[in-house]
Design a protein around this nucleic acid. Sequence first.
DNA 1: GCCGTTTTCGGCCCGACTGTTTTCAGTCG
Length: 584
Amino acid sequence: MKNREIAELLYEAADILEYQQVEWKPRAYRKAAQMIENLGEDIKKIYERSGKDGLTEIPGIGESIADHIAEYLETGKVEKFEKLKGKAPSGTAELMEIRGIGAKKMKKLADAFGIMNVSDLKEAINAHKLRKLENFGEKSEENLARAVEQYEKSHSRIALGKALPLADEIISALKARCKSARCKVDLAKIIYTGSLRRLRETIGDIDILAEAEKEEALKVMDAFVSLPDVEEVVLKGSTKSSIILKEGTAIDLRVVTPESYGAALQYFTGSKEHNIELRNIAIKKGYKLSEYGLYSKESEKQIAGKSEEEIYEKLGLVYIPPELRESRGEIKAAAKNALPKLIEVGDLRGDIHMHTNYSEGKESLETMIGEAEALGYEYIAVTDHSRSQRIASGMEIEKLKAQWYEIDKLSKRFKIKILKGSEVEILKDGSLDYPDEVLKELDIVVGAVHSGFSAPEKKMTERIVSAIGNRYLDILAHPSGRLLGKREAYAVNFENVFEAAAANGKVMEINSQPSRLDLNDELILRAKNFGLKFCISTDSYTISDLASMRYGLGQARRGWLEKEDVVNTYPYSRLKEVFKKIKH
DNA sequence: GCCGTTTTCGGCCCGACTGTTTTCAGTCG
C-alpha cells in the first residue's frame, strides 16, 4: 500500500518548506499526510477507481496535492519534491526531532555553521560554537547538548505494553507523594491522557493530568519532579512540568483547576487533529475552545469545562470515546449520533489463542485453564503449535491427541468450556501443517505464518489466500506478522486476503501481545469494510499474559469495532456455530 | 495549499515555558 509512502513524502516536503519559512503550505501538507495515513483504504485503489476527483474528495487534499499524488502513483516520484530536496539540510527530518530545534533555529545553524544533521550539530556543540550565535547563549547550548543526548538514547516511540504499566506505576508513586505532602488534590483525578489514553500502539511520551487549586499546583509539581528515577527536569512551571526518567521516557504533568479539568482532559487526550477539528466547530458556533474550557467569544464567559461530556454536548456532539479521537470521521459521526457502540472489556467471554507447556508455553494445561476460569471466562481454546514449528516445540499428532485426552479429563473438573485447538503453521505452499483428518477433529484451527517473512508480496499473498481456502481453517492469526519496533510486516496484499477471508467466512485475529497488536487499528478498519468478523486473543505463554487482553481490546476499539464484530463476545453455543459454519 | 450554512478571498487552534530579551520569538504539544 502506498499510503504510508505518500504521507512520508508530504511530511518531508512540509519540513523543507517550513525550513524555507514558507507560510501555511507546510500545515496543508501535514494535514493531507495525516488524512492519507488514516484513510483506511489503499489510496492507489481510490485513484484507479475514481481518478483525481476521488483524491480531491479526501478532506485536506485539493487540486495541487492530488496532482502530486497522481504523479507519484504514475511515475514513482514527484518532480517538485525532488527539486525541494536540495533546499534544506540533508538531515532535516532528524534535526526536527531534536527538542528545542525548529525550522528557524535549524536555518540559523545551517547558515552560520553549515550544520546539516545531528552529528554536525553535536560537533558544533562540543566546540562551543553555538553560544556565540545571536540569541543563543550558554544555557541554550547546554540544553541542546542534553537534547541531542536524549535523542540518541531514545528517539523511538514506546510500546503501549510498556507505557501503560509504567504510567500506572508513576501515577501511583505521584499519588503517594501528594498524599504524604498533604497536597489538596483529588487523587482519583490524577490520570494519564495523550496517546496513551487513546491506547495507540506506541506512545511518544506519557502525559499526566491532575486537578488542584492554583495555590496547591506547585506542591503537586514539587512532588512530581522529585519522583525517584528522574534523570532530568526539563521544565517546571505552575501548570506544566516535564521530566525525563533514567530509562529515557519523557513524562509531562499538567495541573488545572476543577472548572477546567474536563476541558484539559479533552485537550490533552488529543489527538491534535481531532482537537483542531473541534476548535473549528467551536469557532463556527461563536465559541472559543482551549484547555481551560469552552468560552463564549463575545461575553468570554465559560460555557463548559468541568467535564469532557459537557464540552462535546455543547458543541452538538455525542461523547466520543478517546480511542476514536483520531480525526477519522468520528466528529461527523458524532454530529449525526452515528458513532459505533464500541466493544467493552466485559463483552469478552473467552480467550481463543493460548499456549501451554505442550509446546512453547510456560504453564501446564491445568494452570492455564484454572487462571482463565478465575478471570471469569465462559470458554477458552488451547492452541499449541503444530508439528513444523520445531523452534516452538511444535506437537506431533500423537502428542496433540494426548493433549485432547487430558482436556477431556480436565473438562470434567472445570466449569469453563475448553475448546481443542491448534495454532497450525501455514506452510510455504499454503497448505496446513496437519492432515485434514486431524484438523477436522479440532474445535478451532488458528492458522499462522511463522517463516519465510521476506517472500515477495505475490508469493505471500498466494500462500495465505490458499490457506484461507482450506475449509478447516477458522482464524487467521497475527495476519501481518509484524513485531513492533523489531520486524516489519511481511509484504502481502491485504485486499486479496480480506476478500478471500470474507468469501470463506474466516475470522481475523487481533493479537493482543504487546509486541504484536496485529491486526493493527488501521487494518482492522479496512478489514471491517470487507464485512469480516474478528477475535481478540492473547496468544498467552504464561498466566500473566492472559491479562494483555486490554491491549488488543484497545486496538479493536480504535478500529471502531462493536461487540457483534468480535466472535469471542458470543456465548459458547453461538461461537461453536460460527466455526461449524465455516467448515460446512 | 486548502476551504467555505458567515467567506471563492482571506483566513488558517491556542496557550505555556524558556532564554535572552527589556517586550518577545521560538518551540512544543
